[in-house]
Write a protein that binds this DNA or RNA. Structure first.
Lengths: 201, 201
DNA sequence: TAGCAAACCGAACGGTCGTGCGGTAATCTT
DNA sequence: AAGATTACCGCACGACCGTTCGGTTTGCTA
């Protein structure tokens, strides 16, 4: 089937465009132009703009998992794996060549947080899954004995995510020179505090 | 001049709309409809959409200062003032009736972080000012002796902002039941850590 | 009260949007 | 090789976009 390769290529380009301009701001016409095919030809692949948006989001989420979580699974469970996830995540935000516009998931989150609909539900589901995976990795770290037994993994997950958001904000919007330093330092502190009695519920 | 009141009313309604749909997504026609006047009549007040967007942002920033910083200035400098700022900020995010769509500044930040232009520059300037004010309040706390002398106020500012972003994310997108608890707890911890030797550069 | 500036309107412009249709060319199935 | 399915195209639609313009109403000033 010739369409499959074309479809993947469309999504890759659309993803790149959406990372710069936002999921709602992109238009089918401009994607088509960039891909090098007609508007109606592209439209035929997805049967509505909403479908296209959902598939873009899906493509991004897949890529995120492949870049951040999958490689970290090769590290032994516990602290090494946690650190690998964090490092991959930071690198992801620093912007592989694929996303000139920062993490599309974070961008989409603030873009959609107040207009209900299929896309928002889908995004929320993906975010919950991401957080669940963070917490699972943290739970394993507890089980391995690398963390204090009283650590509240849900709270750790929130801390972790917050510092990622802060990093993203300082880095991408403000171009703050100390963004990398802050994020790295904060994550180390967070891990250390989890080894002591702090961060319990 | 009859136009002044009308102008303020337009901005108030436009601000509300922009908080839900984003600064780029709003259209002059829909704002005009909601205000109850003609598209061209509204357009006459601002002479371009970009001007309108900038003025919306300005309105939001003014209101933010008035709700978050100004009331906190009545508290004595140092810890009490810091806590007041935080409390007001949290309340601001919880969404006064004015913003059904979460903090427009945060929303605009992710929306604009990758498309350069006047609006982004303006937003960035406002964000830097906000951070500067946070740091100034923290510096005063140091001067009052409420914090350890080695505290790195720039780093504290980043921590503070990060937890606000995390709160916003968990609260508005995910409707997480523990969002308030996490944010409150984290801020208390942050203050405590600033009183010890931690959080130095 | 005359005159003027500003607020506001309706209509229209060129443009882009998402979407649908009919037709052609390529590919797969049998 | 015949037939069915699919990819893709050009074209056109109705709707909405930001913006402009000429004309009417309103409120202030002299």
């Amino acid at each position: 089937m010739r369409g499959a390769r074309s479809r993947a290529e469309i999504l890759k380009i659309a993803m790149r465009l959406a990372s710069r301009e936002g999921l709602e701001a992109i238009s089918i016409g401009r994607i088509a132009e960039k891909v090098g095919m007609s508007k109606s030809g592209l439209f035929g692949h997805f049967k509505s703009k909403e479908n296209l948006q959902r598939e873009i989001l899906e493509t991004v989420a897949d890529r995120f998992a492949k870049r951040v979580f999958v490689p970290a699974m090769k590290e032994p469970r516990g602290l090494p794996r946690l650190k690998a996830i964090h490092q991959n995540w930071i690198r992801w935000i620093q912007g592989s060549q694929d996303f000139p516009g920062g993490c599309p998931l974070i961008a989409a989150a603030s873009e959609l947080d107040d207009q209900p609909g299929l896309i928002k539900d889908y995004l929320k589901e993906k975010q919950l899954l991401l957080i669940h995976n963070l917490q699972k990795a943290a739970q394993l770290t507890k089980d391995e004995g690398h963390f204090h037994a009283d650590v509240d993994v849900e709270r750790l997950g929130w801390y972790w995510y917050s510092l990622i958001l802060g990093y993203h904000h300082y880095k991408r919007l403000l171009n703050h020179p100390r963004a990398d330093e802050f994020a790295e330092h904060a994550f180390d502190e967070l891990l250390q505090r989890c080894q002591k009695k702090e961060l319990s519920s």
